[in-house]
Amino acid sequence: MPADAIPHSGCTVDLTGQVALVTGASRGIGRAIAERLAACGATVAAVARSVDGLAGTIEAIRSAGGTAEAFAGSVASSEDVSRIVSEVEAKFEKVHVLVNNAGITKDGLMLRMEDEAFRDVLETNLFGAFYFTRAVGAVMMRQRYGRIVNISSVAGLMGNPGQANYSASKAGLIGFTRTVARELATRNITVNAVAPGFIETDMTDVLPDKVKDVVKDHVPMKKFGQVDDIADLVCYLSGPGARYLTGQVIAVDGGMTA
């Protein structure tokens, strides 16, 4: 199912009255997550580099009867993140759910990788999650309630040649998740990570068929996942049913890491 479709408004997780902040919400997995949370009743604060980039996400949510607002800035900038969280809190008063999804890749073999490529990926994928968790965590501490979901990757669990920077950032996010889960547990705040495998997105669509076939050969289920597979799990982790689930890393990968 395409990411621009909200398949069901009758979501089994009731997030009515809650505010969910989703980074990297302009496309792919982030957009699917934003739309699913809205379908389940949450008011979505969608974050990306530009408001224009979020237009499709906001329109899809509103057309389906949901509520969403766009907030622009760089997740790699501590100043931008502080501003965005302040704006979200000023507009909606609370933040119940944080989904740290924003991420980039700058692939290359480690021995040939430039400093900038390694630094940029770490600053977006790992530092960005830290900045948002620190800022939103303070809001959640005052509320004594919160759900934080970090989007890691199977690359952070098993490594992937040509992605030393990306794998390091996603593995770091797993360690970050487990530590923050321990720190915030007594305040009724859960912190979990989702580790997607190969998911059908714009990035995988451009891969040659031969490459796709090779990838599928390494997946026990012999197929790519869908963005809805990730969005459904994030929605569950964001709801009341996951109240005793924290510090966990859940791989959605068709059995790759089994």
Rank of each mutant, 00 (worst) to 15 (best):
I250K: 13
Y166K: 12
Q226S: 11
V95E: 10
N125D: 14
I189L: 03
R134Y: 00
E123S: 13
M256D: 03
F176C: 06
G241I: 01
T201L: 01
D213F: 05
R243I: 08
D213C: 10
G24Y: 03
Q248M: 07
A45M: 06
N192S: 05
D232S: 14
D205F: 04
N165K: 05
M221C: 12
V234F: 00
T186A: 13
R144M: 08
P2S: 08
P240F: 11
M141D: 05
P240E: 10
K210F: 02
R83W: 06
D209V: 05
T190I: 05
V22Q: 10
L109D: 07
N165S: 13
V214I: 14
A138W: 02
H96Q: 08
I250P: 15
S26Q: 01
V19A: 04
E89A: 12
R178N: 02
P220R: 11
R62C: 05
A90F: 02
E89L: 03
D228K: 15
R83N: 06
K222H: 15
D52H: 05
D107M: 05
A231D: 11
E123F: 06
V214K: 14
V180T: 14
I148W: 07
A185L: 14
G159K: 02
S9L: 15
I61Q: 10
E123N: 14
T105G: 02
D217C: 12
D4F: 08
V85L: 06
A60N: 08
S78P: 00
L126D: 06
D232A: 15
I148E: 14
S74G: 10
A129D: 04
S152F: 01
G65K: 11
V88Q: 04
Q18H: 02
V22F: 07
T190V: 02
S238E: 11
A39V: 07
S238C: 11
P7Y: 11
G24H: 08
V249M: 04
C235E: 06
T177E: 09
